[in-house]
């Protein structure tokens, strides 16, 4: 699996780590049962703080893509699918945009609801 981050980008580094792992799941480079590198090792490789990597891993756990077990490290969960990773990644981008624009939670949810009800016009990018 390839994990790239860009410290110059606006997105927090932990989110970038999570996004990179999601991409690997979406492309099939990572599958259920695969073990992610230890957060400490990944932090050294990417020259970031270990808490940054752990924050990324926690995001992925909250999305149900990986399981974090004490002593066993991070393992891609059986339920993790390419579709799930793609949706989680798109959601991540939406949330990042909403934060940048300073939108309230209710407004974001309303926008999503409206978009969902709208008839499909173009295939998603």
């Amino acid at each position: 699996m390839l994990i790239g981050i860009d410290p110059a980008a606006q997105v927090p580094l932990g989110d970038q780590v999570a996004a990179a792992v999601r991409r690997n799941i979406a492309t099939g480079a990572l599958g259920p049962g695969d073990r992610l590198p230890a957060a400490r090792d990944l932090a050294v490789s990417l020259d970031v703080n270990v808490h940054t990597v752990l924050r990324g891993y926690q995001l992925l756990r909250d999305e149900g893509l990986i399981e974090l077990r004490r002593g066993r490290g991070a393992v891609v969960s059986a339920a993790a699918t390419a579709d799930g990773a793609e949706l989680a990644e798109a959601t991540g981008r939406l949330v990042a945009a909403a934060r940048r624009l300073g939108l309230a939670e209710a407004d974001v949810l309303e926008t999503v609801r409206l978009a969902l009800r709208r008839p499909t016009t173009a295939p998603p990018g």
């Binding site: 390839l2 790239g4 590198p37």
Partner: peptide
């Protein structure tokens, strides 16, 4: 080569 933005960092790892 891979595409990597200037200043970007990357790692590849596999078991």
């Amino acid at each position: 080569r891979v595409e990597l933005p200037a200043g970007g960092r990357a790692v590849w790892t596999r078991v």
